[in-house]
Design a protein around this nucleic acid. Structure first.
Lengths: 199, 199
DNA sequence: TAATTATATTAACAATGTTCATTATATTTG
DNA sequence: CAAATATAATGAACATTGTTAATATAATTA
C-alpha cells in the first residue's frame, strides 16, 4: 500500500503537470477538463478518479507556482543591494512574474474557488504570497534597524494591496494601456510606500 | 426612423434592466442569456437582435451602476464634515457598496471583457470609478488648501489601488475571513494614506 | 487459471453561448 | 380593405462545458 500511494501521487502529478503547462502557456481560458486529460494522456473521466473536480486539480498548481515565483523574484533581485531597495526590486519582480504569466495571476486571484479539501491552506499561500517572498529581506531590514519592527506589518499590507490593485486593473482592464506606463506607475507607487523608510 | 431608435432603445432596456436585477441579486453566476431573456419576457434568441453578444449586454449595465454607486456613497457621506475626513467616508462607502453587491464588483473588475463596440468608454468609467466619486471633495480640499494640488493625483491612485486590492482579496479569497476584520483593515489602510495630509 | 478488485474509458446529461432558418407580426402599397 | 413586403421574435440545432453512471479493461489474489 506504499506502492498505491506512490502510484496515485504519480497519476495526480500527470494531470497537475499538464494543467501547469497550459496555465503558463495559453492561460485559464484554454484549460478544460478534456484538454488537461488529453495533455496528460488519459481520458477526461480518469481525472475524476483522482480529483474531486476540476477546481481541486487546478488549485493544486498553486504551491508549485508560488515556489517558482519565489525563485523568479529572488533571481531578479540577487544583484540588488540588500535593504529597502532589495524589497523594492522583489516587489517589482513579483509584478513582472504575473505580467509574464497572466494565467497564473488568474489562478491566484481571479478564479472562482469552489469548496474543496484543503482550501484554507491554498488560500493562505495565495494571500501571503508577496509577504513570504519579501519575508527574509524585511527581517534583514529590521535587524539592521533600517525599519522599525512594528511598522513592517503595515507596509507589507500596503504593498500587498497596492500591487494587487495595479495588477487587477492592468490585467483585466488594460489600464494603463501600455506595459511601459504600467511599470512606470508601479515604480511610482512602490516608491511612494517605501520612501518614508529611507532616511 | 426616430420611432425606430426609440423602440430599439426600449427593447435594449428591457434586457438591461433584467440583467441589472439579477446582477444585484444573485450575481454573475446566475446570469445566463436564457435567464436574462426570461426575466425580460422574451426568447433568448431575441437578445441577439439587439446585442452583439451577452458581453455587450452585460457591460451596458456599468454606467447605471456607477451612477447608483455615486448616489450610494454621497448619501452615506452626506453627514460627514467636508475635507479629508469626507474623502475617507466616501472611500469606505465605496468599499461597502461592492461588499453589498458582489455581482457588481465582478462586473466592474473581474469579468473577462470580450471585444465590443464602445469598450473603451466603459473601461474608462470603471477605471476612474472611485476617482470620479471623490472628485468634488478633492477639489474642495485643494480650494481650501487642505492638500497640495500636485499631490492629489498620487493619493488618488494610492486609494484606488489599495481599495481594489483589498476588495479583490476579500471578495475572491475571503481574506480576512470576517467582515468586521475587513472593514477594520480598510480603515487602517485608508487612514495610513490620508494621515500625512492631516496637519 | 479463475474470481475478485481496482482502474480507465465510453456514453450520456444538463447547461452554456451562439447561429440560422422559419414563423409570426407589423407596415406599406395597390 | 386586401395583398405584398419588410421587420421582429422564436425554436431547433450545434459545439463546448463540467460531471456522473455504466461498462470495459487491467491487476491482484485465491
Amino acid at each position: 500500500m506504499k506502492n498505491k500511494e506512490l502510484q496515485e501521487k504519480r497519476m495526480k502529478d500527470y494531470f497537475i503537470q499538464a494543467a501547469k503547462g497550459m496555465l503558463k502557456g495559453e492561460g485559464l481560458k484554454s484549460l478544460s477538463v478534456r484538454s488537461i486529460a488529453d495533455q496528460a494522456g488519459y481520458s477526461f473521466a480518469t481525472m475524476y478518479n483522482y480529483f474531486k473536480d476540476v477546481n481541486e486539480l487546478v488549485f493544486h498548481c498553486v504551491n508549485d507556482f508560488q515556489e517558482e515565483c519565489k525563485v523568479f523574484t529572488t533571481d531578479q533581485a540577487k544583484k540588488s543591494p540588500r535593504g529597502i531597495s532589495k524589497v523594492k526590486t522583489l516587489v517589482l519582480a513579483y509584478v513582472n512574474y504575473f505580467v509574464e504569466y497572466p494565467g497564473i495571476f488568474e489562478l491566484f486571484y481571479l478564479e472562482r474557488v469552489a469548496n474543496f479539501g484543503n482550501k484554507q491552506t491554498i488560500i493562505n499561500v495565495i494571500s501571503t504570497s508577496l509577504d513570504s517572498i519579501c519575508e527574509d529581506e524585511w527581517n534583514y531590514c529590521i535587524s539592521k534597524k533600517l525599519v522599525k519592527a512594528e511598522s513592517v506589518d503595515l507596509i507589507k499590507a500596503q504593498l500587498r494591496f497596492t500591487v494587487l490593485g495595479m495588477l487587477l486593473l492592468y490585467m483585466n482592464r488594460r489600464v494603463p494601456s501600455s506595459y511601459a506606463e504600467f511599470i512606470s506607475q508601479a515604480e511610482v507607487q512602490v516608491d511612494a510606500l517605501l520612501a518614508p523608510l529611507r532616511d
